[in-house]
Design a protein around this nucleic acid. Structure first.
Length: 479
RNA sequence: GGCGCGGUCGCCAAGUGGUAAGGCAAAGGUCUGCAAAACCUUUAUCGGCGGUUCGAUCCCGCCCCGCGCCUCCA
């Protein structure tokens, strides 16, 4: 099997992936905080994780991925209170929307999608473990992690903790801490606030403890891979390490993978700049799920992705090229026989595709391998050297690529409909299309080009694309 | 100030110590009744200045520029 190498933030270099449990890769993914709809930047990160897990699976590895949903934090508590509903009810709708969104993008559901509020007991138990080891202290009912007791702190983010201490911009929380670097494991309830009554007192979990508790519960003390956006490396992931390794004494994560951010038209995405998009904003503007998927996965994850209007157009056209190619493979007529040259060419593409992804999930390289094949096979078809037996083989290769890319299925309208977006134009029924095509063919045959062109115009008005093939047959599709 | 990512064809974006993948766009062409669509072909010397080297876009140093993190954040 091909050696997969990944860029580990912890060591800042490329390392071979060697799963703790042979044949199975266990991944923890920092999921969304469900106080609002996820934005396109979130999906950049989730898209990376999807490509990663799909690739691992395509290599015959089992994947056990856990993604958390943070359904309790300050914003959620405040927003829910403002709406006059419980936090569970408040977050339910955003979780539902999130699941719909990732489905629309063909992002696979992790094996476990877990909510923080379902794991309060696990967090309490973990905090108790840390207490027993003397790594915590209590102040005004809140429990903090004492970083001074964990010398490895800062290794992941290469943060100079001493400098942090001296720095001016320390976290001025409402809580009392011994040291500005310390972080809350458990927060005492404020008046009127939602809280849990537990063995360690009333309150609610700090943000970081949920990930440590849930990751280890489902994946064991040492995970193969932990992913998230670059912004999470510090302090979130750093704190996860402190909590987990503080409790177990074992290495928490072997490989840390951090996805770079997405920016919009060269600028940081922010609500104040008015360039803050949810997925549905983009769908409402007429962009297809597959276009967004292509755009998000086409740029390797460790590179900032500049999300632009022009980029969307390019992504849409590129996706079309791929789909057109497969359509041609499936519908065109080829001379009988098979050609070993084509087989060789296809195998090369398969190898290049895997090699690209094995190299730290280099999607640009993988896509290049696919497009190289598209061009070469098209050429072979044009030259008549592509034969009948070659077609299913080429289709199989494209489908194999699509196990990872998930771009070929022409189901955009369906997926949009699920989210309540209807196609702009009423669709002409397929039977009607076929009938009109036949009529047009007949008109052409008797050289009644006026009538033929009328029909063609009618199709254009209905958003239907005609393709007159070389052999006289006609292919068509909805735009 | 510290840490990190990046500056390669009009746009997006790989890559390698020995003279640059791929996609989009553009131009030319094939096909066509004419078109469209589809397909083919063509198009860069790699931010700047030094250094190492027989040879650097790729190694080292300095500089310039963009973005991010260092406080909640994918």
């Amino acid at each position: 099997m091909i050696q997969i190498r990944l860029h580990n933030t912890l060591t800042n270099d490329l390392q071979p992936l060697v799963p703790v449990h042979p044949g199975e890769v266990r991944i923890y993914t920092c999921g969304p905080t469900v106080y609002a709809s996820a934005h396109i930047g979130n999906f950049r990160t989730f898209m990376f994780q999807d490509v990663l897990r799909r690739f691992l699976k395509s290599q015959g590895l089992r994947v056990l991925q856990v993604m958390n949903v943070t359904d309790v934090d300050d914003r959620i508590i405040q927003s829910a209170a403002a709406a006059g509903i419980g936090i569970r009810e408040y977050t339910d709708k955003y979780i539902r929307a999130f699941v719909e969104d990732i489905d629309a993008l063909h992002i696979q559901m992790p094996e476990e999608l877990v909510r923080a509020t379902d794991h309060i007991e696990d967090m309490v138990a973990l905090i108790e473990k840390l207490q027993a080891k003397g790594l915590t202290y209590t102040s005004e009912g809140s429990i903090y992690f004492r970083i001074a007791k964990f010398p490895a702190y800062g290794r992941l983010s290469k943060i100079d903790v001493a400098g942090m201490q001296a720095g001016a911009r320390v976290d001025v929380d409402q809580y009392e801490k011994d040291d500005a670097r310390d972080f809350a494991l458990w927060k005492a309830p404020k008046p009127g606030e939602h809280f849990w009554e537990t063995r360690i007192g009333p309150g609610r979990p700090g943000w970081h403890i949920e990930c440590s508790a849930m990751a280890m519960k489902y994946l064991g003390d040492t995970l193969d891979i932990h992913t998230g956006g670059v912004d999470l490396a510090f302090p979130h992931h750093e704190n996860e390490i402190a909590q987990s390794e503080g409790a177990t004494g074992k290495q928490f994560v072997r490989t840390w993978l951090h996805a770079e951010h997405l920016i919009i038209e060269g600028q940081k995405m922010s609500k104040s700049l008015g360039n803050f998009y949810t997925l549905r904003d983009l769908f409402a503007r007429g962009h297809k799920p597959s276009t967004i998927r292509y755009l998000l996965l086409s740029v390797p994850y460790r590179r900032q992705l500049n999300f632009t209007e022009e980029g969307i157009v390019q992504a849409r056209n590129s996706t079309e090229r791929l789909r057109n190619f497969v359509t041609r493979l499936k519908t065109a007529q080829f001379p009988p026989g098979s050609n070993a040259e084509n087989e060789k060419r296809i195998e090369k593409a398969e190898n290049d595709f895997d090699a690209g992804l094995a190299d730290d999930i280099n999607t640009a390289m993988a896509l290049a391998a696919v497009f190289d094949l598209v061009r070469d096979i098209n050429t072979s078809m044009d030259r008549g050297t592509f034969l009948q037996q070659d077609a299913p083989r080429a289709v199989a290769a494209m489908e194999k690529f699509d196990d990872v890319l998930a771009l070929l299925a022409d189901d955009d309208d369906e997926r949009l409909a699920k989210l309540g977006f209807s196609p702009q134009k009423a669709r002409m029924a397929a039977a009607e299309v076929e009938a009109l095509i036949e009529e047009r063919q007949a008109a052409k045959k008797r050289r009644d080009f006026k009538r033929a062109d009328e029909i063609r115009q009618k199709f254009a008005d209905s958003g239907i694309l005609l393709e007159d093939a070389k052999d006289g047959s006609v292919r068509w599709k909805y735009k």
